[in-house]
Amino acid sequence: MSASTMAGSPNRAETRAIKRSPYPGWFFTPAAIIYSVLFLVPTFASLYFSLTRWTLFDSEFIGLENFAQFLREPFLIKGLINTVIYAAVTSGLKVVVGLLLAVMLTSQIVGRGYLRSVIFFPVLVSTVGVGITFTVLMHPTQGMINETLALFGIAGPGWLTDPNLALYSVALVDVWKGVGLATVIYIAGLVAIPQDYYEAARIDGATPWQNFWYVTLPLCRPATSTVITLSFIGGLRTFDLIWAMTKGGPGFASDTIASVIYKQYQAGFYGLSTAGNVVLFILIALLVVPLTMFLNRKQGHE
């Protein structure tokens, strides 16, 4: 009796020991270190450095001066407005064109495999390569686009040289390159719609247009919100395509915040460049958070 309690007492202490989880927390460690050091730390540091005049070696605190400059300089304001326009135009077009292409590709149309590949392939191609190619194609006098238009007696515009048009031309190329992704997202959304809905609608005598408007469109809302969110964030952050095609020009006509950040960095205005980063961050937070909330709330009502 007493022997068994004696033998039991060390075991009793063992009871207290917490058994290790089979899902060890240290699995987070490598990712956490890399992510924290190279992403989180700079992000938080940017909040401070955006308030300084900064040479990388030393920084002088100047309060909100960098931000004030952002709101004062016309070319910086222009960049801000351009960024929003660019994001809105590209995501809007990707939604419309992507949905139409997806509807087409999920119908009984011939050559679906070919169409799908052709539309999707540009997604995988180097953005800079695409940008350079279209810069050549969009040349006002020697570009293939305007030369082709001229065959029909149309005088093509200066796609990238007209200050009022340059940003939209780049946006158009962005849509050309990115619409394939929107399309496949919509295709995934469309094939997930149960066929019953269409059958029920057919029994109710719906026309194809009513089908689209009352069945397809509401039921692929999750895909729509994905496409909008994804391409809107992407649009706000775009740098490479703009840099490859116009470098923000002509003048500052097609500058966006991302290109301003780069230009200020190149010019050595590190504090101002970092302020640009913070502005972009705030812009994304201000626009994307309400946007996703709006899109998701609507979804909940369905």
């Binding site: 068994s4 009793r12 063992e14 009871t15 917490i18 058994k19 290790r20």
Partner: peptide, 9 residues
């Protein structure tokens, strides 16, 4: 058996 196994793997 004769062992408390609360904390045993």
């Amino acid at each position: 058996g004769d062992k408390v196994v609360n904390a045993v793997e």
